Computed example of a mutant assay.
Amino acid sequence: MDISHMRRDFESEGLDREHLDDSPTRQFEHWFHDAKEAGILEPNAMSLATSGRDGQPNLRTVLLKYFDDQGFVFYTNYGSRKAREIQENPNAALLFPWIGLNRQVIIQGRVEKVSKAESLRYFAARPRGSQIGAWVSEQSRVITSRGLLEQKVAEIKQRFSSGEIPLPSFWGGYRVVPQRIEFWQGRPSRLHDRFEYVRQDDGWLIQRLQP
């Protein structure tokens, strides 16, 4: 199937250095706000790329739950494929594809676990169904039928039928600590505006990249 004819010229305002915040976190916050205001569906959805010691890359979509100057936080099962790969190679990349705004943000950095207190605080705020789901799923493991999964849901509901559901020991958060962040703005004729922030000892180096 030849789809080479599919193309769209990006009609967007330009991105200039003087309009960028010196802090990549604040610049991300500005763009994240724009994505929410524009009605982008799940603006906190991000592609997470990891690879284990074999070097084979894997990619999936996860949800950003928190960000600040320390990094970008998501939650998962510590026995999942992504978690096993992070243990073998604690480097990852994130992509926010805000296509409706002709924008994308790419983040590369090292990955570390958040504290148990942080994981507990977030887990306690999740809907009860999501808390049960965290206990039920042995994420990324093979299962022969959905019926077995639903049976386990019933068992977990019975187990925690009264009172709060505790944080599973095998579930929690990761923080991607950025070393490089790129802000990409689509422009006409594929002459896009790209700026990268590269971490240095005393702050961030900001430079324009060719499209």
Rank of each mutant, 00 (worst) to 15 (best):
S119W: 06
D34R: 15
F67D: 03
R53G: 07
P43K: 02
A83S: 15
A35D: 03
P57S: 08
I106G: 00
L101T: 05
Q87C: 04
D68M: 05
R84H: 10
L41G: 05
L64R: 01
A45T: 06
N77I: 01
A92D: 06
A49V: 12
S115R: 13
K82V: 08
E37I: 02
S51F: 14
E42F: 06
A35Y: 03
G55W: 14
D34P: 03
L64K: 07
S47L: 11
Y75H: 04
N89W: 03
W31P: 02
F28R: 03
Y78N: 05
S51D: 03
T61Y: 14
T76F: 07
N102A: 13
V105M: 11
V111I: 15
A92I: 08
K116E: 14
P97Q: 05
Q56F: 14
W31N: 00
N77D: 15
K82W: 14
N102M: 09
N102I: 00
F72Y: 15
I40G: 02
Y78W: 15
S119P: 09
A35S: 14
K116S: 12
V114L: 13
I106T: 11
S47Y: 08
T61M: 15
P43N: 04
F96G: 00
E88C: 04
I40P: 01
P97M: 05
N89Y: 10
R81W: 06
I86S: 00
A83L: 05
L64H: 12
I106A: 06
A117M: 13
N89M: 07
A45Q: 09
H30Q: 12
P57M: 06
A49Y: 10
K113E: 10
R60P: 03
G71V: 10
T61L: 14
V105D: 03
G39K: 03
T61I: 14
Q70R: 14
K36T: 05
T50N: 07
F67N: 06
D68T: 05
K36S: 07
D54H: 11
P90Q: 12
R103S: 07
P57A: 04
D54A: 09
A49M: 11
W31T: 02
W31M: 02
T76A: 09
Q56I: 13
S115F: 10
L48W: 00
